[in-house]
Nucleic acid binder design. Structure first.
Length: 229
DNA sequence: CCAATTTGACCCAT
DNA sequence: ATGGGTCAAATTGG
């Protein structure tokens, strides 16, 4: 009976893989046409769902139980978690004159957060999270308590120009060096429909230009953050 | 020379 | 007090 289970397992992975590839294809089409942030966000979440499903399957069923009693309460949320905590009514903060957070409540509501695990295969030599088509600018790096590797903070390159407030955090998994955990915050308001092709900002973006290679899921090697502990 | 990264300091929430 | 997130000056790279 095990063979039947194994067959179903393989079939399941196959179906999920096909679904993910089709979603990526759809995303490419979205990039080349008029981009709606909501649609783009939806695509990202769909892809994240597929990624996580495959991740769970290939690791043997459990996603949050990887570590053994490690004091990391932040369970890797495979599920898409739209951060709309209604408890954000503490706008009666005394003084927030410092930063121009401005209307924090409004912005907090619009911000969505989701995490996606990215596996890298060592065939390509350099590991790097799959490029999501946006150009990111690193603005910080922190050592996280209980984590072996530091966490890197990125924001959209066009934050000033386009007022794009999307950010992401990249952290390598403690145990699995092949797993990167990328947390996205906020949606992109910068249009990459027209400028994405003509933006040679970073070498990773050049991969976007011939975006056909994205279909192949060819692992592109951005520079891995030089973390020397 | 300009832009991106690095890196310690600073700020904020817990 | 502590740890996580961001800023910004210095540095590096194209």
């Amino acid at each position: 009976m095990e063979s039947a289970v194994a067959w179903e397992y393989k079939k399941l992975i196959d179906e999920l893989t096909q679904g993910m590839e089709k979603a990526m294809e759809l995303r490419l089409h979205l990039y080349s046409t008029s981009p709606s942030e909501a649609q783009d966000l939806l695509l990202q979440k769909i892809l994240s769902t597929f990624e996580n499903a495959l991740f769970i399957l290939k690791r043997g069923g459990t996603i949050g139980q990887a570590r053994t009693g490690a004091p990391t309460p932040a369970a890797p949320e495979s599920s898409v978690s739209v951060d709309g905590s209604p408890k954000s009514e503490d706008m009666n903060k005394n003084l927030r004159v410092r930063r121009d957070h401005g209307d924090t409540s409004k912005r907090r509501k619009l911000q969505s957060t989701w995490t996606e695990q990215v596996r890298v295969n060592s065939d390509n030599g350099l590991e790097g999270p799959t490029d999501d088509g946006y150009s990111w600018r690193k603005y910080g790096q922190k050592d996280i308590l209980g984590a072996k590797h530091p966490r890197s903070y990125y924001r959209c390159t066009y934050r000033l120009v386009r007022n794009c407030w999307a950010t992401k955090q990249v952290q390598r998994s403690d145990d699995d060096p092949t797993v990167f955990e990328i947390t996205y915050k906020g949606t992109h308001t910068c249009n990459l429909s027209s400028n994405a092709v003509s933006q040679p900002a970073s070498p990773e973006k050049q991969e976007l230009e011939d975006n056909n290679s994205l279909l192949k899921l060819k692992a592109k090697n951005l520079r891995v953050n030089t973390e020397d502990l």
